[in-house]
Design a protein around this nucleic acid. Sequence first.
DNA 1: CTTAAACAGGACAAAATTGTCCGAATTAAT
DNA 2: ATTAATTCGGACAATTTTGTCCTGTTTAAG
Lengths: 144, 144
Amino acid sequence: MFSKACEYGIKAAIFIALKSYQGERVSLKDIAAKIDSPEAFTAKILQKLAKNDIVDSIKGAAGGFEIEKHKIASIQLAKIVDAIDGDSIYIGCGLGLNKCSEDHPCPVHHKFASVREELKKMLESTNLEELALGIKSGASYLKT
Amino acid sequence: MFSKACEYGIKAAIFIALKSYQGERVSLKDIAAKIDSPEAFTAKILQKLAKNDIVDSIKGAAGGFEIEKHKIASIQLAKIVDAIDGDSIYIGCGLGLNKCSEDHPCPVHHKFASVREELKKMLESTNLEELALGIKSGASYLKT
DNA sequence: CTTAAACAGGACAAAATTGTCCGAATTAAT
DNA sequence: ATTAATTCGGACAATTTTGTCCTGTTTAAG
């Protein structure tokens, strides 16, 4: 469904949000360990998230990643997915047709529409705060 | 959402169904041209569909691919997807956790459940016959 | 000022996916 | 029998995705 990069990005963002919520800044090393991802690859993804204003990166000793507390609740899953995988998940044709629209649909166009719509709604209505709280409360997990 | 291989596989199956419905057998060359796919790559995919008993392949001159008429309506999209991409789309975790279940869910487990369920229902309730008829009637297209 | 901890980013490497080529086997038609 | 049309399948190649490494830069702390 999502690329590995996107999976790591979502998990990293959730972990950073969780820690930022508690006033802590986290290092790449920490993140990779807690979400069980390859460190250097995760670094690249965090750069993307930083460039898309989803996380703040602070250089130097005692540096790391954080998200401003007041922003956590306003960052939707959709924003993260879009930053990493782009919008193909919303707009692309399910069968890869170059031109696939209402008046030139692929065979599964209408069948897919509702699934895609549901996915879109889900991504747009889910924010980092609730996901971080799920981890904090032990209701959900970031690895294994 | 689906791999390229799966996209080609679905389109190929629809085209073969359409022609079989009209009593015609089709060649690889024909298929690739009509669904706008790379010929040799499509050949590999058709082999998979044949091994999974979704299409019949007939060797030799005047050979080609076909689907027994009476089977067309009973072949669900899900069967094709499963033959090519496997079942990861149904059972895999949205965030790539090795172990993701009701009592050890990833952060988006429950949010994803409904989307995945909708996708599954869609794939299981859509069969080749209706897709082929959509092409036949001009209601949908296999390329561009 | 020096050092150590951290991120940035370019170059590289590995793996997976996508795609190509070609010889072998099969079969219908002549 | 020979030929031509066709699929099969193995080996290979290109591309994309995933992942690693190393050097440089920034910054806090001693």
